[in-house]
């Protein structure tokens, strides 16, 4: 098995699907000869030609609309939005159009589009280059939102996303692109888009996270283990729809939960998870479900980023609160 960074795994997934299915097209700003500003599409244009991997003009809404037109002709477009903060320019195409195509046409038209986009903080890019805006899309029925935390998951989830017959937003955390390597099979494989992953088993408390916060949660769990606290860590992997069954099963075991997200606090994925838990498993809880999130302010400037972003210490503090309730 190869050792790959997450970005290599993402490129590998696109290469796999470009080979498997001639209807897969990869396009966006600078994805051609340049290979993408983060090199996610490096080498793909040389390998598959300018018809299947191509640069678009600098126009996000146009990229979204073009994807819909191509999807209506039977293609599986994999457009890239260069930074997810630029989603506001293509918001209507995503939430207003592709997510509703199946519904509004009574099932006769579909949009099997996978929008890839880098997001997330911790790499010293300021606001609109670092925001966690997954909640904006997670609120829209008709589209799935997938966020991998490891190279292995990135490849399997991206292949599944491209093959899915509904639109998928595939968010790639920039801090995870090259921060570590992991084992990734060279052959193709898929990962169910409706399944969370128990990253670490434990009995005292459940930490629920996604994206980079999975790693902060694992770090917190390791530190707490030294003090005899045994934490379970769940990686949601797909934040819309959410795998509630896996969460509830864990809650029944640990009776204590902390939900971790990098996004700001209000109206986010974590709030939704908390609501689902209290509706389904309140009698299994020994303490209120707490959240670790960024503050409800605009994304921080670079110098304050490490303070602004949630980290493993914030998680440990909340775990102590739920344990000592």
């Amino acid at each position: 098995m190869a050792q790959m960074t997450m970005i290599q795994a993402i490129t590998d997934a696109m290469r796999t699907e470009l080979k498997n299915d001639e209807n897969v097209l990869v396009f966006g700003e600078d994805v051609g000869q340049n290979g993408g500003v983060f090199r996610a599409t490096e080498g793909l244009q040389d390998e598959f030609g300018e018809e299947r991997v191509f640069d678009t003009p600098l126009a996000e809404s146009g990229i979204g609309g073009l994807s819909i037109g191509l999807a209506l002709q039977g293609y599986r477009p994999v457009p890239e939005i260069q930074f997810f903060g630029f989603v506001y320019e293509v918001m209507d195409s995503i939430n207003g159009q592709m997510a509703r195509m199946r519904y509004r046409s009574g099932g006769t038209h579909t949009s099997p589009i996978t929008i890839r986009s880098p997001f997330g903080g911790g790499v010293h890019t300021p606001e609109l280059h670092a925001d966690s805006l997954e909640g904006l899309i997670a609120q829209q029925p008709g589209i799935k939102v997938v966020i991998p935390s490891t190279p292995y998951d990135a490849k399997g989830l991206l292949i599944s996303s491209i093959r899915d017959n509904d639109p998928v937003l595939f968010l790639e955390h920039m801090k995870l692109y090259r921060s570590f390597r992991g084992e990734v099979p060279e052959e193709e494989y898929t990962i169910d888009l409706s399944k969370a992953d128990v990253k670490r088993e434990g009995k005292d408390v459940t930490l629920i996270a996604y994206g980079a916060m999975v790693h902060a949660s694992l770090k917190a769990a390791e530190e707490m283990e030294k003090d005899g606290i045994n934490a379970e860590v769940i990686d949601l992997r797909t934040v819309s729809p959410i795998d509630i069954d896996t969460i509830v099963e864990s809650v029944k075991k640990t009776n204590r939960v902390v939900v971790v997200q990098e996004a700001q606090r209000q109206a986010g994925v974590a709030a939704n998870v908390v609501a689902e838990i209290q509706e389904r498993a309140i009698l299994h809880l020994e303490a209120p479900v707490l959240r670790v999130t960024a503050p409800d302010t605009v994304y921080s400037f670079s110098a304050a980023e490490e303070v602004w972003l949630p980290n493993h210490k914030d998680i440990i503090e909340k775990v102590n609160q739920v344990l000592n309730f």
Binding site: G62, G65, L66, G69, L70, A71, G74, S93
Partner: peptide, 9 residues
């Protein structure tokens, strides 16, 4: 842009 996508196809 939808029509443009169809034309590209």
């Amino acid at each position: 842009p939808h029509a443009v996508g169809v034309a590209l196809a």
